[in-house]
Structures are given as C-alpha cells and as structure tokens.
C-alpha cells in the first residue's frame, strides 16, 4: 500500500533555543544544511544563526526576538526537509502553517532558500521597527466562549483555528494579557505563544503597506509539489502575487486545510517543524475512520536521533505493510 506523504511546517511559536541540537551535533547532513542557511542569514543580520540557536542561549530562555526566530524556524524546517529528502523520504504535497507557508514555498522550489530567508528577515525588521507589540494566545476551549465573554474578547481577534476546542487569538499585548488573566480565572486553559506580534489580525494594519510591498515583491516559480494552504480554498498550483500578504494577515485555518487533504484520501502527515505541534493538531483533526497517520521528525524533548530513526521505521511499516 502506498499513502502519499505530506510534509507539514509549523509557524511562529513552535521555535525554541537548542531545537534540533542532537541532530546538529550528530547528523552531518542536517548540520551542513543548517550551516548553509546560517551563512545566508549571517550576511543579512550580521550574526551567526547557528550561534544564536545553539551556542548563546539556554533551551529554557524565551526565543521571541523575531529577527532571529523567523529565519531560525525557516532554516530548521528547511534543513530537516533536506535531511529527509536525502534519505529518500519525499513529500507528495506540502502544508504550511503561517510562517511555515514560507518553508513550503521554499521546499517546493517556488522560491529559493535565499529568497525565503531574505523575506523572513525583511518581515522581521519591518515588525521590529514599526509594529506595536502584540501577543498571541492559544485557548483550549470552544470558539463559542467568545460569545459568552464578549467583553473580555473585545480587542482580540481569532487568528487561528487549529482543531475543535483549540483556537488562537491575536491582539495588542495588554489586551491579550488581560484576556489571559480573565480566562485563567475562569479555569480556561491558555498558552501564550512565543511571538511578540499579533499575526493574522488588524494589529498589523499600520505596517500593512510595507508588509504588502514585501509580499508582492516575491518572485515565484511554479511549485514542484502541490501546496495546501489554510488561506486558499484549493491546493496551490501557482502562487498569486498577494498570497503571502493573505498568509500573514488572514486567520489560519488548519482544520480546513487538513479536511481538504483528507478529501483526497489517506495520507501520512509528517510534522517537519521543531515541536510536533502540527502532528498533535492533526491527530485531533483526523476523522475516526481515517486511516491516515501522523508523526513528527523531532520535538522539544530532545532525543532527536531516536525520533528520526523511529520516523524511518514507522514509515517503513506504514508504507510496506
């Protein structure tokens, strides 16, 4: 039996210092690609990305400086993809979540890795220069609670729909903190993402001109693999000019994207991000009757090598049996 493979790329919030450390130390191919990306980024920001991720910061520190986290996430996901592709684990289609859509565009060869990293850095600079500080909050409850507590949600916008009883809101920092405090007092589980900007919401409005300009200057080629997106209703065969502006500004809808993929049959979903967050989301999104599988390449608990070999043997079982 052969199931098509989906590579999934997570977005802001899934990054952490030391991500992929064990692979970086032990897998020469992963290390090569990371160094390759790091060098490109160093030309752009004047600092070594590898130093930032592995040699300067403890895992427990918050990794939320976007000038670093944006290119770091893209580099990690890209390097993991190259490592898998070199192991002949090839994607049949791609799925990106927020910034992960940039990884999808690069892995599909619609953009080069240089173009992707330049974009990630330019967006980060624009936000750091002129975007008010915001926040993103994941909420473990039904979206209906917005109606119940409309006042508390007043200045926050739904910016992501992950799966049932798990959604994300964005807003200005104070508004999000107030909401978080309120929800905690009501025993609603929340989790602040490591992001200092209110992506996918009107908090970005005063940098919208500049962001739009950056997005529209991307020069796409035809993607090599079909790309599923959470802002487009069908899979992408050709990127449109304003596509990444929509990715940044419109809410993410993972539910829709996975439903779209599932409609075309069972798939193996590989989370090629650093945290396994999408893999978790997918397990909630899959229909009980679906024979689709999900797995991650690495996660924040370390033991990367073990995870990678687990991935290889699982794939063998799924693809061969």
């Amino acid at each position: 039996m052969s199931m098509p493979i989906v590579f999934m790329f997570s977005g802001q919030g899934s990054q952490y210092f030391q991500m992929g450390r064990e692979l970086f130390e032990n897998n020469p191919r992963f290390r090569l690609w990371m160094n390759f990306c790091s060098k490109i980024v160093e030309d752009l920001i004047g600092e070594s990305l590898v130093d930032i991720i592995y040699y300067r910061n403890e895992k427990s520190e918050k990794f939320d400086r976007i000038l670093h986290s944006n290119p770091a996430l893209l580099s990690i996901e890209y390097s993991l993809s190259r490592m898998l592709i070199e192991k002949r684990i090839l994607p049949d289609c791609l799925l990106g979540y927020s910034l992960g859509e940039m990884t999808a565009a690069v892995v599909s060869d619609a953009l080069t890795i240089e173009e992707g990293l330049v974009f990630a850095v330019d967006v980060a600079r624009t936000l750091e220069e002129s975007c008010p500080i915001g926040a993103m909050l994941a909420i473990v409850d039904s979206e209906n609670i917005i109606n119940s507590y409309s006042e508390a949600f007043a200045n926050c916008t739904v910016s992501g729909r992950n799966f049932e009883n798990n959604f994300v809101v964005s807003g200005l920092l104070d508004d999000v903190l107030r909401l978080q405090h309120f929800l905690e007092s009501r025993n609603v589980l929340t989790h602040r993402l490591s992001v200092k900007y209110g992506f996918h919401s009107e908090v970005l409005e005063n940098v919208s001109e500049e962001l739009k300009r950056l997005c529209c200057s991307l020069n796409f080629r035809r993607p090599r693999y079909p790309v599923y997106s959470s802002v487009e209703s069908s899979k992408i065969e050709e990127y449109s000019e304003e596509y990444f502006w929509r990715v940044i500004r419109e809410p993410v809808n993972l539910m829709n994207a996975v439903n779209k993929i599932e409609k075309s049959g069972s798939h193996i979903y590989i989370d090629v991000g650093p945290s396994g967050t999408l893999s978790t989301s997918v397990s909630y999104l899959l229909n009980k009757n679906s024979s689709s599988k999900k797995i991650e390449v690495i996660n924040q608990f370390g033991k990367d090598i073990e995870w990678v070999s687990k991935l290889e043997s699982q794939l063998t079982t799924w693809l061969v049996s």
Binding site: P28, R29, L32, W33, F36, R82, E86, D109, R224
Partner: peptide, 11 residues
C-alpha cells in the same frame, strides 16, 4: 549527498 556535498535543485 555524502560528506560535505550539497545538492540544490534549480527551478
């Protein structure tokens, strides 16, 4: 894709 060698497809 051995040693230091990288293969980078061009579109």
């Amino acid at each position: 894709q051995e040693g230091q060698t990288l293969y980078y497809p061009l579109n």
